[in-house]
Write a protein that binds this DNA or RNA. Structure first.
Lengths: 191, 191
DNA sequence: AACGAAAGTTGACAAAAGTCAATAAAACGG
DNA sequence: CCGTTTTATTGACTTTTGTCAACTTTCGTT
């Protein structure tokens, strides 16, 4: 498992085998079951997760039980309830592993420690964050400029595996639409 | 002008006067007129701007002339067409100074150079980016979970100056709604 | 393999928001 | 300060999307 993480990160940083061993030793393996909750809302997010296999979902749930998916994290990506993890505040979002998954998790303290200790580690994380921020900007743009059908078409084009692999209700609340609307979008082939 | 930038950054970094002089020397002042375009879409964003006075708008414009505001940047904040600035690709967004403004601008090369040169500079920028990303996440959440009225109410509560200060059409396309809808939201005082 | 639960589909209707158009108000620039 | 241009408001109507409910299908679990 750690080898996959190393392969994912190594293009962005040059470390000795000793440094790699040190870094990787702080990522603890975790196996999850389908729909297992990793973080309940209201608690402070203590871990950043790397998905080796499976899929995580960062989601919101309101008083009426309505859910909305903030992010979906697939193989080879990192994720957590970011505002909570960084600001050390109770999370408004929960984290769930949608599928049985293999994860590597690092604690907040270790994460920060590596930044201060490992040369290039902060740069690597900074770069990753830049990409995450860019992805968020693109998502904001799709939400303010497109209707449901356009957003669905673009998701289908850019990330078809997400649609194939996940329950429609999750795709729907990731797109910010109802499950019924998504079902109708899929039905109509026209325009 | 540079003093304001120094005061804004100094809580996050400890530099000698010489280091400050070095950093600040790379921020060039720029005075803009109302509605002046700082970046046209299709060009690569070369500068990161710090707003000393006034307001910048990062916006999208489609083939039919429909505009959508990606971000608004007020006094004391940084902004640019971020994906273009970082990825060195043509920007899909344009940048405009909505009001006559006083800016400090730093080039991409100088920005990167400071990261490699000034101790603590990367950490400072990393922190700033974390907050920007968190703001983006909050905005995504408001877009996928709330209707127009709720988004308006929250903006009114958290950032009333934005509504007071800016033309309604810009507030509207920042919220992802039409100008007419915004006008009607303002009218109805109920629920 | 079969049962039960969860997810998906569809229809009917309601609510939200967009569009077009006319008018009123406000703001900019000389 | 005045005229021109932009912006805001309002009405009528359309389109999109949501909600509720019934029914079907799929999928997990034993």
């Amino acid at each position: 498992m750690h080898q996959i993480l190393r392969n994912t990160l190594s293009p962005g940083i040059n470390l000795t085998d000793e440094q790699w061993a040190f870094v990787l030793s702080h990522y603890k393996p975790k196996i999850t079951k389908r729909n297992e909750i990793l973080l309940e809302k209201g608690k402070v997010s203590q871990y950043l997760y790397f998905v080796v296999k499976g899929c995580l979902r960062i989601f919101l749930i309101d008083d009426e039980g309505q859910e909305a998916t903030r992010f979906l994290i697939f193989e080879g990506k990192f994720g957590t309830a970011f505002p909570s993890f960084i600001l050390r505040e109770p999370s408004v979002a929960s984290i769930q592993s949608i599928e049985p998954s293999e994860l590597l998790m690092i604690s907040y303290n270790d994460y920060q420690m590596l930044m201060d200790t490992v040369p290039g580690w902060e740069r690597l994380n900074h770069r990753g964050l830049q990409q995450d921020y860019i992805d968020a900007i693109v998502r904001i743009e799709s939400l303010i400029t497109m209707d449901a059908k356009e957003r669905y078409d673009i998701l289908m084009k850019r990330n078809p595996k997400m649609i194939q692999r996940l329950p429609g209700k999750i795709v729907a609340d990731y797109l910010g639409i109802s499950q019924e609307t998504l079902s109708r979008l899929k039905a109509r082939k026209d325009r």
